[in-house]
């Protein structure tokens, strides 16, 4: 979708199918899901699993 210098995204949002990236960026709750799920999996859960696997000292 072309971007206009001063207005909104070009084209009529009612009559034109928006590209998937535009739909993603326009949906704050989908962004919220991504922003919580990605670090939760890659940082927190992965990190906690690694610490949990450390053998307990005898």
């Amino acid at each position: 979708m072309a971007e206009t210098p001063s207005g909104g995204p070009a084209g009529d949002p009612q009559g034109e199918r928006l590209p998937p990236m535009q739909l993603l960026l326009d949906n704050p709750f989908l962004l919220l899901f991504i922003g919580v799920a990605v670090p939760a999996v890659l940082y927190t859960i992965w990190g906690v699993m690694e610490v949990a696997q450390i053998p307990v000292a005898q």
């Binding site: 971007e3 993603l24 960026l25 962004l31 991504i34 922003g35 990605v38 670090p39 890659l42 940082y43």
Partner: peptide
């Protein structure tokens, strides 16, 4: 470019916390 700047923010959303 709105799109490029918004994509840059999207990169923050997904990866900055790491």
């Amino acid at each position: 470019s709105e799109k490029v700047s918004r994509t840059a923010f999207l990169l923050y959303i997904a990866f900055l916390q790491l």
